[in-house]
Every structure is written in structure tokens, then in C-alpha cells.
């Protein structure tokens, strides 16, 4: 059941656009309702195909052309998502063609990348943006990033970071919108609007990813990846509002954090991922883990091995695994 959901949700992101063939399966019919297309596709998928859709690999360890060619050969056409490190749209189209033509069902690959404050036209860090108190400018800047990303082959950014940050020793204070919950909520909305545009299916839109759900900035002493003692009161009055605002603004995805939230790691937290995000807020997109945060459940003492970590993470509500390959 849970595994099925992990497929349903990513695909719920994929509304309709251009041409479809005649007598093709329902899932390829752009005129069929999205939910019907998803149901049809899911019925056709094998378990292995479903599992591959929940995996994200990296494409090219760096943007070096040799590296990228080698990666292209290594990528399985059934993969769900890639962290796309090339800037070249030709490679993206090649890999997409491989997925569309060489996989049994022809499911496209979602290409993600860390576009945090600009793609190539780099603009100020988010902490600086917040000091402008200018929502429109932030939206405009994120729209520039979205357009450059899409034209380079990227469909999905791992941004905005909306962790309210009050410990300047922590290195990631640069990536968020400062110490105030309301300011983070406002810029959460402003950036989602910029990235996703009017419609996700527009040719210059990319999917946003609210991160790092939740409480990551409370890592003890500002030491990254550490335990975060987040009281339920603080979680609700300080950390949740920017996420709730971003979800309401239509953010397609969220990323689960590295941190342990008062004893239950963020990437295996049924309360935050399922009870709040999916059940209370009715979020219609999906959750990706942070880089290796599923496997990190092992050193955190929450899972005994990779299999256990995967099970706990997926059962809690993480639907795509960033590069653990567990």
C-alpha cells in the first residue's frame, strides 16, 4: 500500500500538455484525467519498476563530459529521478529518450538539482534576500533560476530552505530566510511562486522542494547533522508555519531532514511526514529524503541495516530516496 502511494504521488505532479498517440494506453493519453492515467500506469508496473521510480541517482559526479557519457550508460532507463549535474539540455534529452524508449513503459525521469540562489545567474543567498523584505523581487529571481534550470535540463530544485535559524554558528543559516517564522513563511510562498510559475507544466517552471522538514536548524550547538531537541510547542509555533504556507502555495515536494527530532529522525517520522503533511495538510506531492538520510538512520540508532532503514523511512512517508541506493 505504502509503496503504491510512493508512485501515485510523484505522478500526481504530472498534469497534461502536448500530443498523445491513438490507441495508446490510458496513461499516455493527455486528454484522460490525471488520476485515471496514474491508476492505469500503476496497474501496469512491476514491483521492480515501482521501486526504481522511488530512487534518485546522480548523473555525472561532476559536469565533466567524459563523466557524463559514462553516467549515461550506467543509468537505468527505469530510474525515477536523477540529480542532474550537467548544464547541457542535449544530455538531458538523450537520457530522457533512453527512459522513454528503452524502458518498458516509457516513464520520464525527473531531473533534480540544487538551485538554491540562482542557476548560472547567481543572485544573493536566501539570508540576504530576506533582508530585502521584497517578496516580488524574490519571486522574480526564483523565476529566473527556474527558466535557466529548465533550459539546461533541470525539472526540480531542492529549494527553498525554510528552516527558521537562530544559531549563526550553523553553516546553513545562509540558505534560509533568517530567524523569524513569518518571514520564512512569506519567502517560502514567494519562492515557490517564482519556481513553479502559474502552472508546473509551463515550459519555464520547475518543481520546488521545501526543506528540511523539520527542525534541522536546531541541530545541537550549530553542529550539522546532530540531534535536534524540538519541543512540540516550538515545532508548531516556529517551524511548521513556513512549511504549512509553502504547502498551501502548492509546493510540489518536500525534503526530510538529516536531524533526529527529539528521538524520531526526520526521515522516519510518521507524525510529521504522514499524519501532518499528508493527512492534515493533504499535501498532494511527494517527499524526498536528504542526501543519504535514509541510510543515516543506521548511525542514528533507529535502524539496524539498510533494509530496516528503507522500511522505516518509507513506512513513515518518505517516497523517494536521494542517492542511498538502499
Amino acid at each position: 500500500m505504502n509503496c503504491i502511494k510512493c508512485i501515485v504521488l510523484p505522478m500526481a505532479l504530472l498534469p497534461l500538455m502536448v500530443a498523445a498517440q491513438k490507441i495508446s494506453p490510458v496513461y499516455k493519453d493527455k486528454n484522460a484525467p490525471v488520476e485515471k492515467r496514474i491508476d492505469d500506469l500503476l496497474k501496469r508496473m512491476t514491483l521492480e519498476e515501482k521501486i526504481l521510480q522511488t530512487n534518485q541517482w546522480t548523473y555525472g559526479k561532476n559536469a565533466n563530459a567524459n563523466n557524463i557519457e559514462a553516467s549515461k550508460k550506467a543509468v537505468r532507463p527505469e530510474i525515477g529521478s536523477l540529480i542532474y549535474r550537467s548544464i547541457n539540455p542535449v544530455y538531458r534529452n538523450d537520457i530522457m529518450r533512453k527512459a522513454m524508449e528503452e524502458s518498458r513503459l516509457g516513464i520520464p525521469v525527473l531531473m533534480g538539482f540544487d538551485v538554491i540562489h540562482g542557476y548560472r545567474t547567481v543572485y544573493p543567498i536566501p539570508l540576504a534576500q530576506a533582508c530585502s523584505w521584497n517578496r516580488n523581487l524574490v519571486t522574480q529571481a526564483c523565476a529566473v533560476a527556474a527558466k535557466e534550470s529548465r533550459l539546461s535540463g533541470v525539472d526540480w530544485t531542492f529549494s527553498p530552505m525554510i528552516d527558521v535559524a537562530r544559531d549563526a554558528r550553523w553553516g546553513r543559516v545562509a540558505e534560509g530566510y533568517g530567524e523569524d517564522s513569518y518571514a520564512n513563511a512569506e519567502f517560502s510562498v514567494a519562492s515557490v511562486k517564482g519556481y513553479q510559475g502559474k502552472k508546473l507544466s509551463d515550459s519555464f517552471s520547475i518543481a520546488a522542494c521545501l526543506k528540511h522538514y523539520i527542525g534541522y536548524s536546531l541541530s545541537e550547538g550549530g553542529r550539522d547533522y546532530r540531534y535536534a531537541d524540538v519541543s512540540a510547542q516550538t515545532m508548531w509555533e516556529t517551524f511548521m508555519p513556513p512549511y504549512e504556507a509553502g504547502v498551501k502555495a502548492g509546493a510540489a515536494t518536500l525534503m526530510s531532514g538529516f536531524n533526529d527530532i527529539s528521538g524520531t529522525p526526520a526521515s522516519a517520522n510518521y507524525y510529521t511526514l504522514t499524519q501532518i503533511l499528508k493527512q492534515r495538510w493533504k499535501h498532494d506531492g511527494f517527499v524526498v529524503s536528504d542526501w543519504g538520510s535514509v541510510e543515516n538512520l543506521i548511525p542514528q540508532g533507529f535502524a539496524k541495516d539498510k533494509k530496516d532503514a528503507t522500511l522505516k523511512s518509507f513506512m513513515a512517508g518518505v517516497e523517494m530516496d536521494m542517492v542511498d541506493n538502499v
Binding site: M17, K30, L151, S201
Partner: peptide, 19 residues
């Protein structure tokens, strides 16, 4: 995102994409 229906992106030169 419409990827099923339009999986490919236009291929412009870097000059037309950035800055």
C-alpha cells in the same frame, strides 16, 4: 509537470540561456 506529454526541453545555446 507534463513530462509524460512533453519529456524534452528545447536546446538553446548557452548564450541564449544565461545572463
Amino acid at each position: 509537470m507534463g513530462l509524460f506529454d512533453q519529456p524534452y526541453v528545447v536546446e538553446l545555446s548557452e548564450k541564449d540561456r544565461y545572463y
